[in-house]
């Protein structure tokens, strides 16, 4: 029911009334319109990083990220037009050239939705990292990291206040890291597992899942996690 704190706008030709302060993403959801997202997660602070959710508001010079842009009264939002599609497709193609998306089915589906060409950028520098297996609970494969920041955020003010993780370097070389790249067991990590829970790709995964992917038996997996647990307790002494 519209009241004085509601605003009305048009999304893809459809009139929508939302509370003042609602984001375009929320308004679109209410109208049953799907806007793709990569970095956005309901449980973490939205930072407008991936820009997959960009929309065209009143044909403005800049496209607006639906996850953080608030609805403007009487505005007209287009969630899919030529400009929007070019941005989404190009971002996906550039991302695919840098990151191993083989364990990110949602992003792969987006790629087919937007006719993104997985070979669009030949000879591109990819972010290759060796798998880091330094604790009994989870592995880190940053070749699959899209830099959504969710793990860093839940480790910090969004949930756990542990501050084991940071972003290191910058630009295309940006990476999720610990202080001086110390192992997770040396870091303040309390192995709460929230980072693994919010990871949208295969960059963070439990050792059980990782072991199963490697074709290890249940016994072998148990042994591998025990061994590392023992190492940890020896380190502590």
């Amino acid at each position: 029911m519209p009241n004085k704190n509601s605003i009305t706008l048009t999304i893809d030709g459809q009139e929508v009334t939302v509370p003042e302060g609602a984001t375009i993403l929320e308004a679109a959801k209410q109208a049953g319109i799907d806007i793709p997202v990569i970095c956005y997660h309901e449980a973490t602070t939205a930072n407008g990083l991936c820009r997959i959710c960009v929309t065209d508001v009143n044909g403005g010079r800049l496209l607006q990220p639906a996850c953080v842009a608030q609805c403007q009264a009487d505005s007209s939002v287009e969630t899919r037009n030529e400009r929007v599609e070019r941005s989404r497709k190009t971002i996906l193609e550039m991302l695919n050239a840098s990151v191993d998306l083989s364990e990110a089915p949602e992003i792969q589906e987006m790629m087919s939705n937007y006719q993104a060409d997985s070979e669009r950028f030949p000879d591109a520098k990819s972010r290759d990292h060796a798998i880091i297996d330094d604790n009994p609970f989870y592995i880190r494969d940053y070749s699959q990291c899209v830099l959504c920041w969710r793990c860093v955020q839940v480790c910090a003010e969004d949930a756990q206040y542990t501050f084991a993780l940071t972003l290191g370097e910058r630009g295309h070389d940006t990476e999720v890291a610990t202080s001086f790249d110390i192992s997770m067991t040396e870091s303040p990590c309390v192995f709460c597992g929230q980072c693994v829970g919010v990871c949208p790709t295969g960059a963070l995964k439990s050792k059980v899942e990782f072991g199963m992917q490697q074709g290890l038996s249940a016994d072998e997996i148990r042994q591998s996690t025990r061994k590392s647990r023992k190492r940890k307790s020896l380190n502590d002494k």
Binding site: G48, R51, M94, F121, D123, A124, L147, G171
Partner: peptide, 29 residues
């Protein structure tokens, strides 16, 4: 490419891709 902060995907990835394409601009693909 050197100065992008890496926060948003278009710039983080785009400054790298732009640099790569211009690197080979004497012999473009």
């Amino acid at each position: 490419q050197h100065e992008s902060c890496g926060k948003c995907f278009p710039c983080q990835l785009g400054t790298q891709r732009q640099f790569e394409i211009l690197q080979r601009s004497d012999n473009p693909k």
